[in-house]
């Protein structure tokens, strides 16, 4: 690899790298183009532009209810993961739990086991316990797959914390909980926002677990797109995808503006 004398990337590296950046954006651009294209398959140049697919999708109760379901699920599981994950990470961080390392490994395990395996395991489990197709079951499944992200970011944020700061609060008269709420929590909030955002997106993105657990009446948006693609390409899917692309972009930029999000990935 060529590099300047001081280790800066040379022209060849820069060009290769920028080509890779373009490669990363290509399918995104294609989806957006398809959403505005009049034909059901894409051509360059597009044969005509239309907003019809957006109108179709936004008027389609199937899509709207799937979107609503996805958002409820993502919000619920993120909130639960944050509460459960932060409390557990805090106890682990303060080394007030025997076997902290083993416990941390268990908390991270859902990241290691393939999602499809978690999916089929829960499918059988919920079939046996009668939770199959229930919202609670689905919510808990999403907590399981999102909580490692929260635990990880909480542990990382806590590791960067000066322990003395919390001790100072204690000596100044704060109870343990007050010290956490008034000092520790505000200081780890940026990291938690990043972890929470990852959890949210993981939930919103999930197919391999969700697809085994949903009932006919409560599908999520990615599962709906996944199944409709099996039927063939539909520009409506492109329109829905474009909405998701724009929403993701906005959230990412906001998170970057407010918290310097790129530091947490």
């Amino acid at each position: 690899m060529s590099a300047d004398r001081d280790g800066r990337p040379g022209h060849a590296v820069t060009i290769a790298a920028l080509a890779v950046v373009v490669f990363l954006q290509v399918p995104v651009l294609v989806v957006v183009l398809a959403a505005f294209s009049t034909t059901s398959y894409l051509t360059i140049p597009p044969q005509g532009l239309t907003l019809a697919w957006f109108g179709k999708v936004l008027g389609d109760p199937t899509y709207l209810s799937a979107l609503r379901m996805s958002l409820i699920l993502a919000c619920g599981s993120t909130a639960l993961s944050l509460i459960l994950g932060v409390t557990a990470a805090y106890a682990l961080f303060r080394r007030s739990v025997p076997g902290a390392e083993a416990i941390t490994a268990v908390l991270m395990a859902p990241l290691v086991v393939p999602a499809v395996v978690v999916g089929v395991a829960l499918l059988q489990y919920f079939s046996l316990t009668g939770l199959r197709g229930s919202f609670v079951g689905l919510l808990m499944a999403h907590v399981v797959i999102t909580v490692p992200y929260v635990v990880r970011s909480a542990l990382a944020s806590l590791a960067g914390l000066d322990l003395a700061v919390e001790e100072a609060a204690r000596v100044l008269g704060a109870t343990g909980f007050e010290a956490f709420r008034l000092v520790t929590l505000p200081l780890i909030t940026p990291g938690l926002v990043a972890g929470g955002l990852f959890a949210f997106i993981t939930s919103l993105d999930n197919v391999p677990v969700t697809i085994f657990l949903i009932s006919a009446s409560q599908t999520t948006l990615p599962v709906l797109i996944f199944s409709s693609v099996e039927m063939g390409i539909d520009p409506g899917v492109a329109a829905v995808s474009t909405i998701l692309i724009v929403a993701t972009g906005i959230v990412l930029l906001l998170a970057e503006r407010r918290f310097g999000f790129h530091r947490f990935v």
Partner: peptide
Amino acid sequence: GLVFQSYALFPH
């Protein structure tokens, strides 16, 4: 009252 070596001021 305790004054820490690192000061331990609340940065936020």
